[in-house]
Design a protein around this nucleic acid. Structure first.
Lengths: 208, 208, 208, 208
DNA sequence: AATGAATGAGATTTCATTCAT
DNA sequence: AATGAATGAAATCTCATTCAT
């Protein structure tokens, strides 16, 4: 069954192998962004990548594996970008701003992959029908909630339920990205600024 | 050609016809909520409704028509519910709270249909690949932005770009609903309260 | 089973019954002429006639019965028209001219029904796969061949195989009608004249 | 997307690909000849070819593509055969005889494909409902009309409207083929001779 | 006499996946 | 490592026909 790279026991992924996989994942992202999750097929991915359908199943064990990679790889890249920005800040409020700001900045710079990731995350389900990325999102909420809690201890932020607000803030950002996803003419930078201001007022102490 | 209800010129939809259509739409909503947009099929809808596949195409001209109805009917119902609440308020801040509060309340009371509506709206595209419900959402933003502008004129709300903030607020609410959609154990009422508080702080004058 | 009027044993077809049947047959002819045999369906016939699908199967036992009637009724009407013209002629050459001339004249005056009849005759098959109207056409050939034979005996026509030539002449006429069927801008009267002239030269004695 | 051979840009059709396509086209011709255009389905074609339905849609993009090929390939083959015969003749009368004679000869030698081609040409329509092969037929008429005009200039043929008569002659030939199509026991060679004689008398100068 | 509703068979088409080469 | 070919399940949709009212 070729060199399907399921969790454990894979051989040594050669350079060529890696390159092919990356190429296929990239093509898949473009296709999802263009025609949507429901109309994404092996045929379209192969066509976009300029290869035959067979190559895809040679390198991947299933369609789901590819799409999962499209979403998670990009998600991870984004997180790397964000982490650097966040850790450069010292105050909680600064870290929250860095979190949201860098996220919007990163996604704004990679529209196609963002569209693909959104679509895949919205549609991928586990076998029991539940959402497939619930855990990842929960971890995000926890991470931001911790920052908020620190801000409350430091006195930079007012009192509120940190998990609820962390969730709200993250969803806010998703929402703004969503409106830009629907309509590319939206000025994401301006919306981003408005959002940061909005959040500042929502969580900061009144004197701020 | 059955009794397909295309735009103009339909006869008089009989009672039994109406009932069947409603039954099918309800079954479709359940199926979408359960297995997701991509895996919703005539076969599953028919099975859920306990009827034959043929009945569906007898009453509807296409799969899209059914799913569009699932989304728009529920959307309209929600709006009716919200309108009553909103118009009962006199201050802009109150109207914003009523808007968001009643929306979360209504969707919270109809989980299945909400899940279906979300999924359909996320996946339905026009023929050109653009989002199918962009117009509806833009109208919502405009409506809320007007309220915000009134609040600014009245002095109840601080200064900000009304359209950006209206969009953010609506997306916030969507986001909170989204987290509840993913995990039914989320206490939507509590999250709703947290959100209203969040918004209050974000848009209210500092003295508030 | 309603009042299906199969060959034997039918009750007394009431006036209303007759009218409905005629209406349905007329609607069927229009539909066949418009969309072609393959795309003719009960739904379209009912829509064209402004009645429900059920009425059709109430009055006819099958789709084939209706279409067969469309073809044969019109065929019979044409033959009635032709017979009068033919019998008014005394010479064989005159009768041949009357035959072809009156046929083209009649069909030319009823384009829609002619298109329907052609399409149906081309597509209707018996159960064994053979052409359904072979017998009718054979009879036509025989009829015309007799006239030709008489003409040869009378000396008005030159010698040739009467059945072959009768067939050729009839097919000639069909062909001219076919070119008009494809392109309504064809001047059928002029083509008809050219055809009569063509036939005259083909079968007449050289001195003619 | 398989190897669908849409107009431009197709790769290099491999030998095996060509063979499969030819096999499928041949099977389709047989099916059309047997059950008629209206009852020709992928299932029957696949069964006839001894392959699965999927293979067909792998090699062809639609049913129409296959049937169009059945008709046009055979039409082209016939024309190749005819061209050789026609150009071997020097007089217009000879060319007309060669035209019709070689056409009947070719079709007579390939009954199944002829039946299929006829059926397809009679039923294929463009999207606007008009006949799909009108252009091809018009070209044929023009070609033959030119020969007739040359014959008139040379003095071999009498005066008549060349386009009308060209049309009539071609339709004559179709007609004779049609009667043989309906009844395979018809002696096509004899009919062909009768037709050539018929045409000779119809268009030749009286002294001929 | 008529109708609307329902059915189920069958049509075309898409597609993930397997396999021989 | 790659490919083209093949498959068969499943999806949407059409339609003649049946039936209760």
């Amino acid at each position: 069954m070729g060199s399907n790279s399921e969790a454990a026991g894979r051989k040594k992924p050669s350079f060529i192998e890696q390159a092919r996989r990356a190429q296929i994942v990239a093509a898949a992202a473009e296709v999802v962004a263009e025609v949507g999750y429901a109309h994404t097929s092996f045929a379209r991915i192969a066509e976009k990548a300029g290869i035959s359908k067979g190559v895809i199943t040679y390198h991947f064990s299933s369609k789901d594996e590819i799409l999962r990679l499209v979403a998670t790889q990009f998600f991870d890249q984004c997180w790397q970008h964000m982490e650097a920005r966040i850790s450069a800040q010292e105050t909680a409020a600064g870290q929250v701003r860095a979190w949201i700001g860098s996220q919007l900045e990163f996604f704004g710079a990679h529209r196609t992959k963002f569209l693909a990731m959104s679509d895949i995350m919205a549609n991928h389900r586990s076998e029991d029908g539940s959402h497939a990325y619930a855990r990842e999102l929960a971890e995000e909420v926890n991470g931001l909630a911790e920052i908020l809690a620190q801000g409350q201890r430091d006195g930079g932020l007012r009192q509120f339920d940190t998990r609820s607000v962390a969730n709200i803030i993250l969803r806010c950002a998703d929402g703004v990205l969503g409106s830009w996803a629907m309509d590319p003419s939206v000025d994401l930078e301006a919306e981003s600024a408005a959002l940061l201001d909005f959040i500042d007022h929502a969580i900061g102490r009144e004197s701020s």
